[in-house]
Design a protein around this nucleic acid. Structure first.
Lengths: 194, 194
DNA sequence: TATTTTTCTTAAGATATCTTATGGGTAGAA
DNA sequence: TTCTACCCATAAGATATCTTAAGAAAAATA
């Protein structure tokens, strides 16, 4: 299995792995191709894998009682996506993870990750840092949700994820921001007129 | 330094420390008393410590350009509070952490924490799990912010933090939920009428 | 105890955002 | 190519939430 995108990410952003750790990881990583609109996680199913996106794009979302989707996270090249709650509690997920494009991923199953944690502390280290970064980013999102208007949140989204907004529809962005597509459209008009 | 509340928390919720790790931790933890309304972090200052609350209650918040406070987090007994962004980036914080009650805390400074990470991998492990839990909780909050009404968010807050809502003012809860105190008052009236 | 500050409530008018409906444009499927 | 589905925009009326102002109750401070 060619896991170099993942190793590169580790050495660029986090702590590089010694040879033995690389070997142990290699044996446990599964590569997959996922077509647009396919799911790698569905509600009611336990989330059994950490997923690293090599190529492509995913959304993780919830469907509420009225049938509306609410996007929690997007993941593109060189990012991780997993329902941490379901993965660690080993309970069925409330969330869906769906490919927005044809994608290539690398996955690690729960038991394999636990093996790696127990035998190479660099995985505790790196995954600690990975989730710390995700936490900080998510904290900014909470802060904006409780303190900013939808227009401010949209402008910040464009600034923060310049690669994403050409790539996904405004419907998806609206769902991420917590507004209706109609209202996002009104916001975009208002911005364009300035 | 008596750090047993912290050690108890580790062994109840996470992985217990071997003796050497306990010793190394003990030498590096600083205990403090903090009076109500005192700050343990202010905007413009780097966040240099992880803080474990032994007794009391804190809020972490931002003040926006209009001078309004927005509560990001509360911390009571046996919980951690830190501005991760400032702590790890070593940049000035945008946030305040202020005591809502007379409190007792245990603190670990950045270099000391790094020492512990490097010499005892159990700290990488435990702090990974601590922030994973915090991430999952915060993710639920994001989901609610983008998908629920203020009334639903308030009812969920009461259910999720039954110990907190007798202890802090509705002004603080409103700021956490992202609504004005006046509107929270209207929500409470509506609920009471049911 | 007396005084000051903070909290909670109420209400009226303003603004942000949603709902529903409609139509045109564009990309994918047959 | 034709058909279908989805996307984006627009608009009118409804609902959620904010702003401002005021007063009474409760808590903190002198």
């Amino acid at each position: 299995m060619n896991i170099s995108p993942l190793l590169n990410d580790f050495s660029r952003q986090y702590w590089p792995l010694e040879e033995k750790a690389v070997g142990a990881l290699k044996e446990r990583v599964i590569g997959k191709r996922v077509k647009k609109r396919e799911y790698i996680l569905q509600k009611g199913v336990m989330c059994n894998h950490f997923t690293f996106v090599v190529e492509g794009c995913f959304k993780m979302y919830k469907i509420d009682d009225k049938g509306k989707e609410h996007n929690l996270q997007f993941a593109i090249e060189n990012s991780w996506i997993v329902d941490y709650g379901s993965f660690y509690s080993e309970k069925p997920s409330q969330l869906f993870i769906e490919a927005l494009e044809h994608s290539e991923i690398l996955q690690i199953a729960r038991n394999d990750l636990f093996y790696l944690y127990d035998h190479f502390s660099v995985f505790d280290r790196n995954l600690r840092i990975i989730i710390e970064d995700a936490f900080i980013e998510q904290q900014q999102r909470v802060l904006q949700n409780i303190s900013s208007t939808a227009e401010e949140r949209y402008l910040d989204f464009l600034k923060r994820y310049p690669d994403l907004f050409n790539r996904i529809s405004n419907v998806q962005i609206a769902s991420y921001l917590g507004v209706t597509p109609e209202f996002l459209s009104a916001i975009r008009k208002k911005i364009a007129l300035k």
